[in-house]
C-alpha cells in the first residue's frame, strides 16, 4: 500500500438486515489529510464513517462484505478485536456527548482503562486539552462537571477525549451541526491544526464547511460513491453533473 494511504476500502457492501446501505465502495483515504464525506441524508456517508471504527457492530442484524484495510490488515478479519481498532480510530459525534464526570475524568477515562497506557495521566490530560484548544478555558475548573460547559466547549472536550487515546485517525460525524457559528469556527480552526498529526475524515451537511476545511471530498448518493476527488476540483469543476447539482443546492 502506498505510504500516503492510511485506509483502503475494497468493494465494500453494507447491509442493515436486507437493506443494502452501501454498494460496492472502493476508495482510499490519505494520511494527514482532511477528507469530507458529503451527500443528502440517508446516502450512506455516516454508515461508511461508522464502518471505519466498527461502530456499526453495535447494531444487531448488520453485515459487511468486502474488505477495509488499515495498516495492511482487514479490520473486519475475525481475528481483529474491534476494541483495538477503536483505540487507533477515534470518533467525535454529532451531538457533544461528554460523560457525566468531571472535565479531568472525561479525558482520563479512556487512557486509564487502556492497558497499553504507561505515561503520566496529568500530562496527558493537559496535552490533550491543549491540542483541542480548550486548556486555557478549563485549566482552573478541571474538577467541575463537564455537563456545565457550553455546547462548543463540550464538543472540544470530546475531541480532546478522543485525542487522549493518541489515535491515528479521527472520525467526525457532523461535529458542528449542533453548534453556533462561533463554536463552529473554533472547531474548524482546530481541524486545520489537527491534520498535521492526524488523518481526519469528516461527515458534513455544510457545503461551505467541506469546501473550507477538507483536502478531498467524496460525494455519496443512495449508497453509491458518485465522485471522489480533490476538494477544489469537486467544488469548482466536478466531473459528474449530479455532484454539481448537489453542491450548488439544486437538490438535496
Amino acid at each position: 500500500m502506498d505510504s500516503n494511504i492510511i485506509i483502503k476500502l475494497n468493494n465494500v457492501n453494507f447491509y442493515y438486515g436486507n437493506n443494502r446501505a452501501l454498494t460496492d465502495i472502493s476508495m482510499t483515504f490519505r494520511k494527514n489529510k482532511v477528507t469530507a464525506l458529503i451527500g443528502p441524508s440517508g446516502c450512506g456517508k455516516s454508515t461508511l464513517l461508522r464502518l471505519l471504527n466498527r461502530m456499526n457492530d453495535l447494531i444487531d442484524g448488520t453485515r459487511v462484505e468486502g474488505e477495509i484495510l488499515f495498516e495492511e490488515k482487514n479490520i473486519y478479519d475475525p481475528e481483529i478485536d474491534p476494541v483495538e481498532i477503536r483505540k487507533k480510530v477515534g470518533m467525535v459525534f454529532q451531538k457533544p456527548n461528554p460523560f457525566p464526570k468531571t472535565i479531568y475524568n472525561n479525558i482520563a477515562y479512556g487512557p486509564k482503562l487502556a492497558s497499553n497506557n504507561t505515561g503520566d495521566i496529568n500530562t496527558l490530560v493537559e496535552q490533550s486539552l491543549k491540542q483541542a484548544v480548550l486548556w486555557d478555558e478549563v485549566k482552573d475548573i478541571l474538577n467541575q462537571s463537564a455537563m456545565k460547559l457550553s455546547g462548543g466547549q463540550q464538543q472540544r472536550l470530546c475531541i480532546a477525549r478522543a485525542l487522549a487515546m493518541k489515535p491515528d485517525i479521527l472520525l467526525m460525524d457532523e461535529p458542528t451541526s449542533a453548534l453556533d457559528p462561533i463554536s463552529t469556527a473554533k472547531i474548524e480552526e482546530l481541524i486545520e491544526e489537527l491534520k498535521k498529526n492526524y488523518t481526519i475524515i469528516i461527515v458534513t451537511h455544510n457545503m461551505q464547511q467541506a469546501a473550507r476545511i477538507s483536502d478531498e471530498t467524496a460525494f455519496f448518493y443512495l449508497g453509491n460513491l458518485v465522485e471522489y476527488n480533490k476538494t477544489e476540483k469537486i467544488f469548482t469543476n466536478p466531473d459528474v453533473k449530479h455532484t454539481e447539482d448537489y453542491i450548488t443546492g439544486r437538490f438535496g
Binding site: 453495535l58 476494541v83 477503536r86 477515534g90 459525534f93 461528554p98 460523560f99 457525566p100 477515562y109 479512556g110
Partner: peptide
Amino acid sequence: VPQTFREASLALGVSKWQTTYRI
C-alpha cells in the same frame, strides 16, 4: 442511560464490560 454514553465510551476503545461497569 443515554445510548450516546455507551457509544462515546466504546468509540474510545473501551471494552463493552468496562463501558457497562464504569459508565
